[in-house]
């Protein structure tokens, strides 16, 4: 089943590459933040998937915390754009 894992990882990495390109290109702040948001979603998924590949149950905790905290960084910048902080 190794081939399957590699294919999945390849697809996810390709997605990451696109998001990074948008991050570098993105004309406005908001575009970049969208890319960051998307990247952090991708990272959560990747971390869980890698935990599965490594077969360590405890690694899931990391992605659990990532899922919660990743969005707060984005929320902060969004509130900044709004003039909220």
């Amino acid at each position: 089943m190794n081939v399957f894992f590699i294919i999945i990882m390849g697809i996810i990495m390709l997605a990451g590459v696109f998001a990074v390109i948008r991050f570098i290109k993105g004309p406005t702040t908001a575009d970049r933040v969208v890319a960051l948001d998307n990247l952090s979603t991708i990272v959560v998924a990747t971390l869980i998937f890698m935990g599965f590949v490594f077969q360590r149950f405890i690694y899931i905790d990391v992605s659990l915390i990532y899922a919660v905290l990743g969005f707060i960084g984005v929320l902060t910048i969004a509130r900044y754009l709004e003039g909220g902080i």
Binding site: L75, R79, E82, G84, I85
Partner: peptide, 8 residues
């Protein structure tokens, strides 16, 4: 500063 939206 302005209030955040109700959803947030």
């Amino acid at each position: 500063s302005p209030q955040a939206s109700r959803i947030v």
